[in-house]
């Protein structure tokens, strides 16, 4: 794992589950993994809507938002959250999807604007690298 510059502000991540699905083991484990990698995790927990997630991303000035899905609804719900962020002028905030996502859906999710996908069995190193990766890519894209 790369060590960030000492003194640099921590990455701020909003973590949520979108919809009704209550499987939050993965979300909680990821929250701890990101905390232990020095990030600040704004934990929204269960049963969030695109509205509550957008509010949180905006008010918390999040660098990235992570959505956990175990309900086989990711192909419907992931584009909805990407669009909701864009509508709110937050289209530059990358979305990472985690949970039960088959490999064959990866292209469709990427095309829908999802920044990264963490499938079943992703290691802590992969989780952290993926979140940092989409944040750093966003920084480069904005030209700073």
């Amino acid at each position: 794992m790369e060590v960030r510059n000492k003194g640099a502000a921590p990455i701020r991540v909003v973590l949520a589950k979108l919809g009704l699905d209550g499987h939050d083991r993965g979300l909680k484990v990821v929250a701890r993994i990101l905390r232990d990698a020095g990030m600040e995790v704004v934990y929204l927990g269960l049963r969030q809507t695109t509205g509550t997630i957008v509010d949180a991303v905006e008010q918390e000035d999040a660098d990235v938002v992570g959505i956990s899905m175990h309900n086989a609804g990711h192909l419907t719900l992931a584009p909805l959250i990407v669009a909701a962020l864009a509508d709110a002028g937050l289209g530059d905030v990358p979305v990472v999807i985690g949970g039960v996502v088959p490999d064959e859906d990866l292209d469709e999710l990427a095309a829908a604007g999802v920044g990264a996908v963490l499938g079943p069995g992703a290691s802590a190193v992969e989780v952290v690298a993926s979140v940092r990766g989409v944040v750093d890519a966003g920084v480069r894209a904005s030209g700073n």
Partner: peptide, 22 residues
Amino acid sequence: DMPTLMGRDSDHPLAIGEVGRA
């Protein structure tokens, strides 16, 4: 499915994407 488990009808706004899926 998740909407039924959560006591929501299939036409509830929170049910989007989850009807009959799991």
